[in-house]
Design a protein around this nucleic acid. Structure first.
Lengths: 228, 228
DNA sequence: GTTAATTTCAGAACGCGTTCGAAAAGTCGG
DNA sequence: CCGACTTTTCGAACGCGTTCTGAAATTAAC
């Protein structure tokens, strides 16, 4: 697992495969078949190499996906955010929302293994903007972390639900309800039963932003440092 | 895949295995080894039966875990909630939080496949309470769904982070930061760099509840129906 | 009593991610 | 030129979830 730009110090068998080549081939396969269907063996076959070879250039399958998303995360712009701390937090979060919505499987990979463990591949400039906004607002560092985490859950959760719903076919609204709740006892759970297929209805982006604004508004003030 | 209490209409080879027996054995193995180490083959061996036999009593491995959690979800109490709609929503959400915190892997299974797809195994009485509270408050049905979803992300996200952090050893705080962000460029991301190991700090339950209160406060009012 | 239908059981096999150990293909010090 | 050393490659194998196919065991029908 050599560093990307490590200087060639010692010699060895010359590589026929490079990490960049692997990533490019993976991108191609994902674009064609979807990322669920990407397998290490097929990827190796695509390059024309043994499957185990890949493990010298990439740690894991997860690592492979991580690297792919990382490139995407670095491309997301984080310029032109408002000066006002609270507005900056909201705008940065909404930008993350839109970026993840544009590439839904990024959110799925980002949330594997504990929801924020893979955060390093997210658009870090925007994460920085949220934390910075919270601290400029007057939050303690610990609370700034908490503010970000809460926003992250709220944002990524919505994206995951959308991509999950999008992956299902169009007319399966009834299936949705069944998949969510199974057979609801209308006696015991009248409101859930009355909701019917509305459960599958996705909220528009504006609803997300409005909720975000209300959320941030309450959340920021909660952790402001006592001033002397 | 026969119904649990289906009347015996047609005959056939008498079963040596029952779904209840499978679930009980799975519970035992999970209690002993943790749910990550539960495999279909080991479970079948524990019962003393071929691996493929299990697939006649259970749809999937996911289905198996779903059934296990379902039993747990049904046991969680949802009585004694406050009358006031907003307070009811908050109390119900906090109860879900505590129930999931007490059995962290339940949250992990509940969030597989799109975050709310497995919602049917959650404590449905509490889900009902949240939706009912939102509607009593005056929200439209669609917004009540959105309110619940947002609370769900916020709550389960926190639980997932906790269980993920708990699974890691004690003194690996430094590892945490590395795992989260890799090598941070302190020039470009000064606030993230300054946070250092604080990222791994878990918020106390009170912080969650305070944030929840602020969240619900803003979220409920946003979707109130226009009154004639 | 025999046959048909039906249900459960299990061995073999598939593709998957991943690991192990050995072989291949170079550079380097002598 | 020649062995040490290093790095890359790859076939074989493991355990996994799952499917296929056929055998076993029972009741229902005649």
């Amino acid at each position: 697992m050599p560093q990307a730009n490590a200087p060639r110090l010692k010699a060895g068998r010359p590589p026929t495969t490079s990490r960049a080549q692997i990533l490019a081939a993976a991108r191609g396969l994902i674009d064609r078949n979807g990322w669920e269907r990407l397998t290490i063996r097929k990827l190796a076959a695509e390059i024309g190499v043994g499957a185990t070879t890949l493990y010298h250039h990439v740690q894991d399958k997860e690592d492979l996906l991580f690297l792919l998303i990382n490139e995407y995360g670095e491309q997301v712009s984080h310029s032109g955010l408002p000066e006002d701390p609270q507005e900056r937090v909201i705008a940065a979060a909404a930008t993350i929302h839109d970026a993840l919505a544009a590439w839904p499987w990024a959110a799925e990979v980002l949330t594997t293994d504990g929801f924020i463990a893979r955060l390093g591949a997210s658009p870090l400039g925007l994460v920085e903007a949220i934390v910075a906004g919270a601290i400029d607002y007057g939050c303690t560092p610990d609370h700034a972390v908490y503010v970000f985490r809460s926003i992250w859950y709220y944002t990524v959760g919505e994206i995951l639900v959308r991509s999950h719903t999008a992956r299902r076919g169009g007319d399966e609204a009834a299936t949705h309800r069944g998949a969510f709740f199974g057979n609801i006892d209308a006696e015991k759970l009248p409101h859930l039963a009355a909701l019917g297929d509305r459960w599958a209805v996705l909220a528009p982006r504006d609803t997300y932003v409005d909720g975000l604004r209300a959320f941030v508004d309450g959340l920021l003030g909660q952790g402001v440092q006592a001033k002397p």
